[in-house]
Simulated scan of single mutants.
Amino acid sequence: MLKEKINLYLEKHGLGHFCPKAVLFDMDGVLYDSMPHHAIAWQESMARFGITMTAQDAYATEGARGIDTIRHFVKLQKGEDISLADAQTMYDVKTHIFHTMPEAPIFDGVLDVMELLAHHDITINVVTGSGQRPLIDRLLRDFGRFLSKEHIVTAYDVDRGKPYPDPYLMGLRKAGDLLPWEAMVVENAPLGVQSGASADIFTIGVNSGPLPDQVLYDAGAHIVYQKMTELRVALNDLF
């Protein structure tokens, strides 16, 4: 199935052999089972500022820069265009609440996928809407065998976050100035999928959250799996 979807992607873009040099992973909900914690932190922090945000809202806006999400909901519910500084202040509260919670576990299959990619000389890269220093430090701690700081894109590397293509275009640059068809994206959220697909990169959805698969397909995913372990099997077959 994966090979068939890749062939359709190649045909659409008028390309020949598919030989990826990099995989660009989202972080939350792809590498870490952290979204339940983020949903709680979003709800509690925004409530302090008079903003209503549900768990469904947290999943639907996952992947966007936190300050962009905050400005969106403040505009929607209060009709105000708040400054980036004010949004950052609110985001700092959300960050504090998140870091009072237990550390989110790594999803089963993640390290196996990275081992497989490294074996085939495919670089590991992370493109996240987060800018939280402790989370970036944890990426290097957990995946330092495969990942370097230079191959991480954060919220502060781009002016426009997901769903715009900018984060994944920056990911291509940091991966070695690659062309879109020289990489693959692994995402779990609609905004992230849209970002990867709009950058013309082959985009794989891993649906670790409560949204229907069709939401990811509608956002542009070329194929959707339920778990990273399923992706590991598919990549092994592909290679």
Rank of each mutant, 00 (worst) to 15 (best):
residue 1 M to W: 03
residue 8 L to T: 07
residue 8 L to W: 00
residue 11 E to C: 06
residue 13 H to V: 06
residue 17 H to E: 07
residue 18 F to G: 02
residue 25 F to V: 01
residue 26 D to A: 13
residue 38 H to I: 11
residue 39 A to Q: 02
residue 48 R to W: 10
residue 52 T to P: 04
residue 55 A to N: 06
residue 55 A to Q: 08
residue 56 Q to W: 04
residue 63 G to K: 05
residue 63 G to A: 08
residue 65 R to I: 12
residue 65 R to L: 08
residue 66 G to I: 08
residue 70 I to R: 00
residue 70 I to P: 01
residue 78 K to S: 04
residue 86 D to R: 15
residue 87 A to R: 10
residue 93 V to C: 13
residue 100 T to H: 03
residue 102 P to M: 06
residue 105 P to L: 08
residue 106 I to V: 15
residue 115 E to C: 12
residue 115 E to S: 14
residue 116 L to S: 04
residue 116 L to I: 07
residue 118 A to R: 07
residue 120 H to A: 02
residue 132 Q to A: 15
residue 134 P to R: 07
residue 143 F to K: 00
residue 148 S to G: 09
residue 152 I to S: 00
residue 160 R to T: 08
residue 160 R to H: 15
residue 163 P to N: 07
residue 166 D to R: 02
residue 169 L to S: 07
residue 179 L to G: 01
residue 181 W to H: 15
residue 182 E to G: 01
residue 182 E to D: 10
residue 184 M to P: 11
residue 187 E to W: 12
residue 189 A to K: 12
residue 197 A to T: 05
residue 207 N to V: 13
residue 208 S to I: 04
residue 209 G to S: 12
residue 213 D to C: 10
residue 213 D to M: 10
residue 215 V to A: 14
residue 217 Y to V: 10
residue 224 V to Y: 09
residue 225 Y to D: 03
residue 227 K to F: 08
residue 227 K to R: 14
residue 227 K to V: 03
residue 231 L to K: 10
residue 233 V to L: 13
residue 233 V to E: 14
